[in-house]
């Protein structure tokens, strides 16, 4: 196993997005850390299998938690690249077997991106009665120079719980286009949280999160939060389909526009094909709620400080 060190810029940006790096670099901590197409650190654990293959412009990886194993410490993943330009391609399979439990903290870092493309194709298979928590935080540097195109396909088995949190709120965005499809089997529970912040006219975010409630009594909630300022564009689409008796879902989109020239669009889309299913949705797009602003200004904050505090809270 090759032990190279992770470039310090990647560690710094992990801290920037709020991850604690000490447990990440600890020698015993389970991890799979990449820079471009090189695995710079890998550490498995009993019941946790990490297999990867370096290809020309990225890697192919299998991440497997075997049947009934509960991984005690979070698995740290880093899909990063310190170069300014280039194309990185990641193909990853996540297999969480029956009754397994794991928390993964993924960190996608492109701190110097000027003209950089990152593509990721993730396939997620979660067995029965398993629990999979996946949190992915992005940092794309300060130049709006990254183009990031991840796709996720996930199948969540009977009685399993799957929660994902995606956030891109520090630094710039560049171009982001995310496409996620999650299928829930009987009694499965899905929670998707997505947060993005576009800060200039070079920042364009397009996120489509879809949950398909295919099994009886499956449940899904999608929560999308975004802010756009300085000409940024944020489009979010939260889709939930209820295709089985007892399926219940909720889509909740909230986007805040700051200043002129920015665009935000939130589309909750619900489709129900079973008369015993029920999906609800809510969406709010526009400026910050006036009463929230007034309240903070009555404590002495300026309008700008108040907007900032409200947006930070929401993201």
């Amino acid at each position: 196993m090759q032990e190279k060190t992770l470039p310090h810029e990647i560690l710094e940006s992990a801290e920037k997005v709020g991850f604690d790096i000490d447990p990440m670099v600890a020698p015993d901590a389970p991890k799979l850390l990449l820079n471009f197409n090189k695995v710079v650190a890998v550490k498995d654990a009993p019941g946790l299998i990490l297999k990867s293959k370096e290809i020309d412009d990225g890697i192919v990886a299998d991440i497997i938690v075997t049947k009934g194993v509960k991984i005690k410490y979070p698995l740290h993943l880093c899909f990063g690249m310190v170069a300014q330009t280039g194309i990185q391609e990641i193909v990853a399979r996540f297999i969480i077997e029956d009754g397994a439990e794991v928390l993964m903290l993924a960190h996608c870092s492109f701190p110097n991106a000027c003209d950089l493309v990152h593509k990721m194709e993730a396939k997620i298979a979660v067995g029965k009665g398993a629990k999979f928590l996946y949190e992915e935080r992005h940092y794309h540097g300060e130049n709006s120079g990254a183009s990031v195109y991840p796709t996720f396909e996930a199948d969540i088995g009977e009685g399993s719980y799957f929660k994902t949190v995606f956030s891109l709120v520090q630094g710039t965005v560049g171009k982001v286009n995310i496409n996620a499809n999650i299928y829930a089997q009987k009694d499965a529970k899905i929670e998707m949280i997505t947060k993005a912040y576009g800060k200039s006219d070079k920042d364009k975010v397009m996120i489509r999160d879809a949950v398909f409630l295919e099994g009886n009594n499956s449940r899904g909630t999608i929560r999308m939060r975004a802010a756009a300022r300085g000409g940024g564009e944020v489009f979010m689409e939260g889709i939930t389909e209820g295709n089985a008796p007892g399926a219940t879902g909720h889509v909740d989109c909230k986007e805040i526009i700051q200043g002129f020239g920015s665009t935000a669009r939130a589309t909750p889309l619900v489709r129900v094909t079973d008369e015993m299913a029920r999906i609800t949705h809510e969406a709010a797009v526009g400026r910050v709620n006036q009463k929230e602003l007034d309240t903070l200004m009555a404590r002495g904050l300026t309008e700008e400080e108040a907007v900032d505090m409200i947006v930070k809270g929401m993201l």
Binding site: R225, N289, E292, T295, M297, A298, G300, M309, I310, G313
Partner: peptide, 24 residues
């Protein structure tokens, strides 16, 4: 004067139905 200016002078208000915030 604006709300902020009045608050800085030492005036503040507790609302009859205080608003709820997300994540604060």
């Amino acid at each position: 004067l604006s709300v902020t200016e009045r608050a800085k002078l030492g005036i503040t208000l507790a609302w009859q139905e205080p608003v709820r915030f997300e994540g604060i």
